[in-house]
Amino acid sequence: MNTLEETLAFLAPSETARAYLDRALREPLRSGIPFVDARDPEPALRAGEIVEIVGAPGSGKTEFVTEIAAHAVLPRARDGVRYDGSEARVIVIDCDGKFDQLRLLRALNRKIEEKLANVRENQRVTMRDEVYEESMSRFTLVRAHGMVDALKTLTALDAAWSGAIESAKRDGLFVDAETAETRETGEDAEGGGTNGAKSGEMAKFASQRLVICDNVAAFYWLDRASRKDHGAPFNIQRVFSAAARLFKRLASAHRAAVVVTKTTLSSNDGRRGGQYKDFLPVEWTNAVTQRVLLAPSNKRVGYGEYAGVATWDVPVRRHGGAYTVTEEGMRC
């Protein structure tokens, strides 16, 4: 900082006090998983948090984020029925092609059917279809065929959300997430369909965002092999340093909750001497604010099912829980 202008720019606040409070006090997202939603002391899925789900292959990581995504897109309540969702915009970046959209649809349909169990049969089908369509309109799936594709997606999200905020500034509107989300999705307060009479009810919570990256280390070995001495522009340090910065920006500047899954390199969930040892660069490790470790349990289950135990590595004061992955989805 050689000039006064550079010093002032460095000291300038990055957001107003009102924007900070809007971010800090935002209601947590609901995942439908008890030990994630528990106030222990606070629910895990909050704006600004980067939650990492770690486990060996087949431990149910993708099933976890499928369950979280299906619950997050649900409305809070519609037509007198409480669905206990978050009405969140959910973006899933699938890095290894294992995110099954059909399982997401089944999980979402199962949750809706459970909430409509006491509704009259002649109303149930119409209500189910309306909630189903509304919920899926908030879901986006992106397939990444390399870590650079994932970085491009994160950069595009940052640019899109920043553009919505700048648009609100130019129009003289208070820049909050509600305004930005309304402009981003093109929702019309006077429109019909699911946004019509319910737009006032939805406005308060429509701004919540959830970014999921399934298997962030899927291309680890390819990135590791791309060393500078081979002339590759993106080595593993640069790739994951950039990913850490972008995820942190989406979490802090755009008030999104971030969930990433990661496959460990060994069967003991990456533990060495009782402590978790990350194999990714330190920039990535420092960006993660919460970490869940998945391991198999001794519970007897049926054929084709998997029983596991989730333990919080960071923060250690949170309590985990048991879960079972079945053909119908995940049970906790």
Rank of each mutant, 00 (worst) to 15 (best):
N298W: 00
V36W: 08
M147A: 13
L105N: 11
N298F: 04
T7S: 11
E121Q: 12
L222C: 02
D176K: 03
F139E: 05
V301C: 10
A197I: 09
D229V: 02
A206V: 07
V211W: 01
T185R: 15
R143I: 02
L4S: 08
R209A: 03
A77M: 06
A77H: 05
R255P: 00
V54I: 13
L116C: 03
Q208N: 15
A253H: 10
W312E: 05
T194M: 10
V65A: 04
N286M: 09
R318P: 06
V36P: 00
E327D: 13
V301D: 07
I236H: 04
G58N: 04
Y83V: 03
M1H: 13
R103H: 07
L265Y: 03
V131D: 05
G97P: 04
N122D: 15
E42W: 09
T179M: 13
D313C: 06
R183I: 04
L151M: 12
D79S: 15
V125E: 15
P43Y: 08
V125K: 13
T7R: 13
A38V: 12
T326G: 02
E184P: 00
A189M: 08
A70G: 08
V131Y: 04
G191K: 01
G200W: 08
S59T: 10
D176P: 01
V125C: 08
G85V: 04
G231Q: 06
L157D: 00
C95Q: 07
A310E: 02
P13C: 07
W161C: 06
M127N: 03
V260R: 00
A69Y: 05
D79A: 15
R120Q: 12
R26Y: 01
Q123L: 15
R106W: 13
G32H: 04
E201G: 07
G186I: 04
L280Y: 00
V81Q: 01
L4A: 15
L173A: 10
A206N: 13
A88H: 06
G32K: 01
A189N: 00
T264Q: 05
G302C: 05
M1F: 09
T140K: 10
D223S: 13
D158R: 07
A159W: 02
P57C: 02
E63M: 14
A69W: 06
S297R: 07
K169F: 02
P57D: 08
G191V: 03
K248E: 14
R103Q: 09
A244M: 04
S241Y: 06
V148F: 10
P75K: 04
I112F: 14
F35R: 07
A256C: 14
V309N: 14
V325M: 03
V211D: 01
G196F: 05
G32V: 03
R76P: 00
E15I: 06
Y20T: 04
V288Y: 01
A307C: 07
E113V: 09
F139L: 14
G172D: 11
K228Y: 11
H145N: 14
V309K: 14
Q208C: 10
L25T: 08
K248R: 14
D40R: 11
G186W: 07
T182Q: 09
R331H: 13
K152A: 11
T155M: 08
W284P: 03
P34W: 08
N298Q: 09
I212H: 03
E6R: 13
A217G: 01
E283V: 06
F234A: 05
A307W: 05
I50M: 05
K152R: 11
P13A: 12
